[in-house]
Design a protein around this nucleic acid. Structure first.
Length: 270
DNA sequence: GACAATGTTACAGT
DNA sequence: CACTGTAACATTGT
């Protein structure tokens, strides 16, 4: 999905719409999605909606949870009433809620997943088990400095590794490095402590900015109400190849770092 | 047709 | 074993 700000924005919307409400049934439409434990999602109330990195967990009042990862093109859209736009050909699952409300799981590329399992087993799923610290919780400048010192990878690749830090993807990694004035290709181990400290603050700042603008709807992202975010109009470098650096006015360049599109300002980011 | 796209993971090679 | 790079997953848009 969408990265931490997008997933967190969805989480807040789901919290508003789902907590205390009953799920009558979960209908799985895409054969690629597992139907394991589906019988446990019948007439159950939602107690909490949590986010871990880019993953979501809808906790139920029967000891079970629904874990969801929307990968790059997933959407979770709540509708209070049946209407004519949804479901569409990309609808992979339908949560049928009390009072005729519906939550649609749409996913164009079908990379996303839904898993139903005991709440106390969610942490054992490989994705959740291996997550690194959360930027707004237990990530510290010292930790960032330590993992950087030990890594041969480009700094951009390192901060996008979910096992090292959770929640940062390509958009916010590009922008955090621009804000910190660090070239994305630099080997992490050669960054100074001053630079990793600056990067730590920049990561928090761009993620907060993402939240402030309701996430980035570069491609398919929408929030739980089906509305797009606005961060794509406020990014520092992401998807701004050939445009002017907001800091110095130089043309923003695009390259590849570890196979991912990478935007940066040659003049600011050394 | 070729290529790239917000993400993760399996696999191959070192 | 640890680390790193690449392919693969599936679909759409340029």
């Amino acid at each position: 999905m969408p990265e931490l700000p997008e997933v967190e924005t969805i989480r807040r919307g789901l919290e508003k719409h789902l907590v205390g409400k009953k799920i009558n049934e979960l209908e799985i439409l895409d054969l690629k999605l597992s139907k394991e434990n589906l019988s446990h999602v019948k007439s159950v109330k939602v107690t909490t909606v949590r986010r871990f990195g880019k993953g979501l967990v809808i906790e139920l009042d029967n000891e079970y949870s629904i874990a969801v990862h929307i990968k790059m093109t997933g959407q979770l859209i709540f509708k209070q009433n049946k209407q004519d736009i949804l479901p569409d050909k990309h609808t992979r699952a339908i949560f049928k809620l009390e009072n005729a409300a519906v939550l649609y799981f749409n996913d164009i590329r079908r990379f996303g997943w839904i898993k139903i399992l005991k709440t106390d087993e969610v942490g054992r799923l490989p994705f959740f088990k291996n997550l690194g610290p959360e930027p707004f919780k237990n990530l510290t400048p010292r930790y960032l400095q330590e993992i950087s010192q030990k890594s041969n990878l480009p700094i951009k690749t390192l901060i996008m590794d979910q096992r090292k830090i959770s929640g940062i993807g390509n958009i916010y990694a590009n922008d955090a490095l621009n804000l910190a004035k660090i070239n994305p290709s630099r080997k992490a181990k050669f960054l100074t402590e001053k630079e990793t400290n600056k990067l730590y603050l920049s990561i928090l700042e761009v993620l907060n900015r993402g939240l402030k603008y309701g996430g980035s709807s570069e491609v398919n992202y929408v929030n739980a109400d089906g509305n797009k975010g606005k961060y794509q109009n406020h990014s520092f470098v992401y998807n701004r190849e050939g445009e002017n650096c907001l800091n110095c006015g130089s043309k923003i360049k695009k390259t590849k770092v570890s196979g991912r599109g990478t935007y940066f300002c040659e003049s600011c980011q050394k």
